[in-house]
């Protein structure tokens, strides 16, 4: 060993912790594997949809429209007590329900499959977040990194930001890819029939909420692994919380149901949110009734965002305070 260069100030470029962290995440084969699994799921679902569905002919579509109209008339005739302004809601069935050739109906299938894919990607990104946080501690590279950037808060938040950024990219790409594939499927094996006027705006809004779920999942996973400093333990805690704790709360402490993760995930993703019951309560003039709480998209988003913020704050606080031995 001999010093090959003259001593001098080697630090001549601007430090780029963010770039280094992006490169670190990109270089991790497990992350690449998880993202490849996500991509494969999108492709498998798309291929399955292609073979499940067949495009209806013009005659099929016309006949379905006729059948839908006839069904509506029958319903109205046999239920004359339905108020006029509620007849559509009560009796109108979309024409695609009467198609025999099972086409890919964009209005029905696109949001549903987008939601399923979004949930799957969010789960994968939770794993990415958890393993990224856990890997730093299992390889003990976190203390070594502090010889290079000693500001612990900056280190943790940069790492978390990179994981969250990856979630945004993966979530958006998944939804864009699915939308493009669904458009092709609709053109070749399906129909746009029954598409409401605000279909696209509702779909984009749904996609954005799904991307938010992915970001929250990735951030929560990273923060949890940083707190516990172990990937396996973080995954175990998550499993126990979701499967055991939340069910116990649902059963014994129903008034707390509006604050559960699973309920709020439903509230954030479902168009218009969800209504959860909070157990029996006395309502003046109406007696004892089941309490209901409407978890709107906004409310659920804020609740989940707050929960993740608490985890991130705790992870940051502990990381700043801990002795790294």
């Amino acid at each position: 060993m001999s010093v090959g260069v003259q001593s001098g100030d080697a630090v001549t470029e601007r430090p780029r912790l963010l770039r280094a962290e992006i490169l670190r995440l990109r270089s991790r084969r497990f992350v690449a594997l998880l993202l490849a699994i996500g991509f494969a799921i999108v492709l498998v679902v798309s291929i399955a949809q292609f073979f499940i569905h067949a495009r209806p002919s013009s005659a099929d579509l016309a006949q379905a429209q006729v059948q839908a109209d006839q069904s509506y008339q029958q319903c109205v005739t046999s239920n004359p007590d339905i108020p006029v302004d509620q007849r559509d809601q009560a009796c109108r069935q979309p024409p695609q329900d009467f198609l025999s050739s099972s086409p890919f109906v964009a209005a029905d299938e696109m949001p549903g499959i987008a939601t399923a894919l979004g949930a799957g990607i969010a789960a994968l990104l939770f794993l990415v977040g958890t393993t990224s946080g856990g890997a730093d501690w299992s390889a003990k590279t976190m203390p070594a990194l502090l010889f290079w950037e000693s500001r612990r808060t900056r280190v943790l938040l940069t790492k978390l930001g990179v994981v969250a950024g990856l979630a945004v990219v993966a979530g958006v790409l998944t939804q864009v890819l699915w939308t493009a594939i669904a458009a092709v499927l609709t053109s070749t094996r399906g129909t746009w029939l029954g598409k409401p006027p605000d279909f696209w705006s509702q779909l984009v809004w749904l996609d954005l909420r799904l991307v938010l779920v992915a970001v929250l999942a990735a951030a929560a996973g990273y923060a949890l692994a940083s707190i516990i400093r172990n990937t396996g333990a973080a995954l175990g805690v998550t499993f126990v919380y979701l499967v055991v704790v939340e069910n116990v709360v649902r059963f014994f402490f129903r008034s707390l149901t509006p604050y559960l993760v699973a309920e709020n995930l439903g509230g954030l993703v479902n168009p218009g949110g969800v209504i959860v019951t909070t157990g029996q309560q006395f309502v003046p003039g109406q007696g004892i009734r089941m309490g209901e709480v409407h978890l709107s998209n906004l409310r659920s988003g804020l609740t989940l965002g707050l929960a993740v913020l608490v985890l991130v704050t705790l992870a940051t606080y502990l990381f700043r305070r801990r002795d790294l031995t």
């Binding site: 280094a20 390889a139 590279t141 070594a144 990194l145």
Partner: peptide, 27 residues
């Protein structure tokens, strides 16, 4: 260098150094 040096085991030696160099702005 404190006790056993700690690096990502699945990265190459050069990649590990690249990550550190980037963090500190070393060419």
């Amino acid at each position: 260098l404190v006790e056993t040096p700690l690096f990502f085991p699945t990265f190459s030696g050069r990649r590990n150094l690249e990550l550190l160099a980037m963090t500190a702005g070393v060419p």
